[in-house]
């Protein structure tokens, strides 16, 4: 009896955690960049898509270059380095270039106009990625197949999703430590309160600004890297991720790390259990949740920034 319940519930919980991981990596960047730099980027989700596309290229290139010559273990390590380090780095560089050229002119605009301008940016990024990777679904599951599956309470489960969840948990803990314990973290928090005073205190706010921005974009890129070995990527998916990113932002509260963690978990569990038990309503529930949170606690679960 217990075994049966476990075999039914455990896969759903693990699915929920994996979903939550991707959502956390997606939503946190959006949230900290908005909360601390006051820049609302509708196009943020496109960095996750970019991360996934770059991962596909990295995986394909690595496999074709060394796949035949080294053993599975070595190949896996090389792939992991590529996904966890190289992909976020490339996405960050792209993000930084865009920051210099496209985003700098719109920092001064009101939130509303930032949304509109970055709506334009997302259209450009989508077509840019289409130009490079084509319009067809891109898929590369080698890292996942190398890791294989694990038998859990009578059902098989892909290790990749567990690995991705673990990586995300470590990152969440690190970020938490960073903002609570380190000097840069404290400065960033102070900047969220008042940019000018921090500047007057002799701190190079622009450099802090860039660091926070790069972390946010890199996390989205990493989200794409962890996502791809499990599922394919197509242009057009970014509009879906845009909505989910904002769901995390709104439910968790603007600029709150705790909020992003909580919101990602909440959405992950709602979607996972919702899809299992009430498949008709799974997607609708997320938006009901989003509207409900905004009505009951407009600042989000953990937000304290005035709505």
């Amino acid at each position: 009896m217990v075994a049966q319940v476990l075999s039914q519930q455990v896969p759903i919980v693990l699915n929920a955690l994996f979903l939550a991981s991707v959502l956390f990596l997606l939503g946190t960047g959006l949230s900290i960049i908005y909360g601390m730099l006051n820049f609302l980027n509708l196009a943020h989700a496109a960095f996750l898509i970019l991360g996934a596309y770059v991962s596909a290229t990295v995986i394909t290139e690595v496999v074709s270059a060394v796949g035949g010559t080294v053993g599975g273990g070595v190949l896996l390590v090389v792939l992991l380095v590529g996904l966890l380090v190289v992909v976020p780095a490339i996405v960050s560089v792209v993000g930084l270039t865009m920051e210099r050229t496209l985003f700098k002119p719109i920092y001064g605009l009101e939130d509303d106009y930032q949304l509109l301008a970055t709506f334009g940016v997302i259209l450009m990024m989508e077509d840019g990625m289409k130009f490079i990777w084509g319009g067809q679904p891109v898929s590369a599951t080698r890292p996942s197949t190398l890791l294989g599956g694990v038998e859990l309470f009578g059902s098989t489960f892909p290790l990749w999703t567990l690995f991705a969840t673990g990586v995300t948990a470590v990152i969440a803990a690190t970020l938490y430590y960073f903002f609570e314990e380190t000097r840069l973290g404290k400065i960033t928090l102070a900047m969220a309160e008042n940019d000018e005073i921090v500047g007057v205190a002799g701190i190079d706010t622009r450099s802090v600004h860039l660091k926070v921005y790069v972390i946010g974009v890199g996390l989205a890129g990493l989200g794409g890297a962890l996502y791809l070995p499990n599922a394919s990527m197509t242009t057009g998916l970014s509009l879906q991720f845009v909505i989910l990113a904002f769901a995390v932002l709104v439910i968790g509260g603007l600029g709150s790390l705790k909020g992003a963690i909580a919101a990602a978990l909440l959405i992950g569990f709602v979607r996972s259990f919702g899809t299992y038990y009430v498949p008709q309503l799974a997607l609708a529930i997320v938006f009901l949740l989003m509207a409900a949170v905004m009505l009951i606690k407009p600042t989000g679960l953990f937000g304290d920034i005035k709505a």
Binding site: L109, L116, A117, G120, M125
Partner: peptide
């Protein structure tokens, strides 16, 4: 279209 929107807003 994206470029036009961006340029107009900015």
């Amino acid at each position: 279209m994206g470029l036009v929107l961006f340029l107009v807003v900015v």
